[in-house]
């Protein structure tokens, strides 16, 4: 028996010994229900993301994303080159509307790039973007980029964590995505004093484009 297997047995036995004679464990209560007064939607999502230093804007349709990316990149004075993740369902012809923005499929370089991705969902109660790992987007790209622009459909913005669990359980009954990343605004650190400094390891800028249609 390996030392890990022996440790496994001894740990589980110790846990069972400790439990011996204890009262039966009550059944788990139903999932937590957030009081109605606290439930929010897109407005709450944008406000809470904004309080964590993310910016957001609305566009009408998916096709409006490239011009919005161009506006943001120009407005921020960023390099006119963006890495577009494959999870964003837009063909090259649509990106032509964003000229002179240079579009590449990646990879994100060491630092300083702008990354544009789609998004599985948003959660209003935390202003969080919910991203899943997939074959189309190297997971580390979301953390190596200096600027992250995420497009999320308004219908995918859910009020609570519980709503997210329900959707995840529907979409992935048994095989969960390898990683799920929740992102609330830019990367930051408080290790160099208060207020926190943005851009600790990951993006220093997070911009959210909400697609209303």
């Amino acid at each position: 028996m390996s030392s890990s297997a022996a440790a496994r047995d001894s740990i589980l036995q110790a846990i069972r010994r400790a439990r011996a004679g204890a009262d039966a464990v009550p059944d788990a209560p139903p999932a937590y229900r957030t009081p109605a007064a606290l439930l929010g939607g897109i407005e709450q999502f944008c406000a809470y993301a904004g309080e964590e230093a993310a910016t957001s804007e609305h566009v009408g349709r998916m096709e409006d994303v490239p011009p919005a990316v161009l506006r943001y990149v120009t407005g921020q004075g960023l390099a006119m080159r963006v890495v577009v993740a494959a999870d964003l369902d837009l063909d090259a012809a649509v990106w032509a509307a964003a000229q002179p923005l240079q579009i590449t499929g990646g990879p994100v370089e060491r630092d300083g790039d702008t990354l544009v991705t789609g998004c599985y969902a948003g959660v209003a109660e935390a202003g969080a973007l919910i991203m899943l790992s997939s074959s189309g987007v190297p997971n580390e790209a979301k953390f190596l980029a200096a600027t992250h622009i995420a497009a999320v459909r308004a219908v995918d913005i859910l009020p609570t964590f519980e709503a997210l669990w329900t959707r995840l359980r529907g979409d992935f009954t048994d095989r969960w995505p390898r990683t799920m990343n929740w992102i609330v605004g830019p990367s930051r650190t408080a290790d160099l004093g208060v207020p926190s400094k943005l851009g600790a390891h990951g993006p220093a800028r997070v911009h959210i484009i909400i697609i209303d249609a």
């Binding site: 109660e125 202003g127 074959s135 990683t179 929740w182 609330v184």
Partner: peptide, 24 residues
């Protein structure tokens, strides 16, 4: 912990890289 609704990054890891994934 920090008086915030949620920390900036919350990550759920389910295992190693899968077939077809570019990284991980």
């Amino acid at each position: 912990a920090i008086g915030e609704r949620l920390s900036n990054y919350t990550t759920f890891v389910h295992g190693p890289r899968r077939d077809g994934e570019a990284s991980g």
